[in-house]
Design a protein around this nucleic acid. Structure first.
Lengths: 185, 185
DNA sequence: CTGGACATGTAATGTGTTACATGATTTG
DNA sequence: CAAATCATGTAACACATTACATGTCCAG
């Protein structure tokens, strides 16, 4: 499938970037839904260059430090467009280690299960709060009017989806905890 | 991390299973949150046997067909319990190819983006409908009273979480589509 | 002048999928 | 008796993480 290939092409479609820049992007908002380490990115950049989808120019940073600024080629743009507009089924499995534990809840004692769920709820609430702050920052920056043509629309979509994902997880955890409390007595 | 190891131990904690049985379980409800192919399961079973966490008995099915019925050992139960009760952070990244495309929405034409989102909405709605049916079946089977002590509680947790996940995705897709429509004029 | 960020790579290992390979059993 | 399901395994390849390895630049 080579999704990393398309992630790189997509990032480069808005302007040139170094491998290091891409790593940073995967640590920021995009990282909610895709990420890769530099050890995976650098070989992929070499491969994409060989395939003619990207090209680079070596730039000197300071007096000695070389960095490679990559940009997308016309062939790369066609390749990206083909992937973007392709319909794909919703995945059967989205791996979630916590939910695997939840499935095995009968192998835990009630109080162990409650502690596990309470801990996860706290962590998800913290994450949701963090994402909410990021979304508010973005709204301030973009001036309240985010629509299709806004350069921040992709960023906005990712943040709203991630926030809803965490909020949905939290409300489910709360419901599950309630079921466990009711059973206890 | 070896999550598959714990998935197998968790499955075996309720009774003995063959490798084939485990493959079937990963295709059913548990597959919403974890899965593995038989080509990954069989080597893992061998490894877990060598490590002393599981053991097997060869059973003859029919007149010739040999199958290995695996069961969990005391050491395996301790190992499972340690994993189950261990607190873990919420993951930074949950990979989602569709959301990667959404992030790159500015590289698409408005009508291309709308078609993509509409297609995904339809597929997620179908999946939600399927999960809803499964949940209703489970409720009928379990007699409306699912609490911690119910043998179906793990199954119930997985189905309710998967259903909410899909419903949340759908409502986000609808909101995104509305934003795109409003912008169009 | 030092610590953190910038910058790029490879090696080893772990995880997961697809393909190859074989055979028995059950149901229609 | 044919097709679907049951049943187990290995090989090759693809994808991903951790560790190894090196060096520059900038701000305090």
């Amino acid at each position: 499938m080579r999704v990393l290939k398309y992630a790189i092409l997509g990032l480069l479609d808005h302007g040139s970037l170094s491998g290091y820049d891409m790593t940073s992007r995967f640590k920021a908002e995009l990282g909610q839904f895709w990420s890769a380490k530099h050890s995976q990115i650098y070989p992929e950049l070499k491969k994409l260059t060989d395939e003619g989808f990207i090209e680079y120019e070596t730039v000197i940073q300071g007096s000695k430090l070389e960095k490679k600024m990559y940009s997308i080629t016309e062939a790369g743009k066609r390749e990206l467009h083909g992937w973007l507009t392709e319909f794909k089924p919703a995945p059967d499995t989205v791996k979630d280690e916590f939910m695997l534990k939840a499935y095995f809840i009968s192998s835990m004692e009630p109080d162990e299960a409650k502690r596990l769920f309470a801990d996860q709820l706290q962590k998800r609430q913290e994450k949701a709060a963090f994402l909410k702050t990021k979304l508010e920052e973005l709204k301030r920056e973009a001036g309240e009017s985010i629509t299709f043509r806004s350069p921040h629309f992709g960023h906005y979509l990712v943040l709203t989806r991630a926030l809803e994902r965490e909020n949905g997880y939290c409300s489910w955890l709360e419901k599950a905890l309630l079921l466990m409390e009711n059973d206890q007595s």
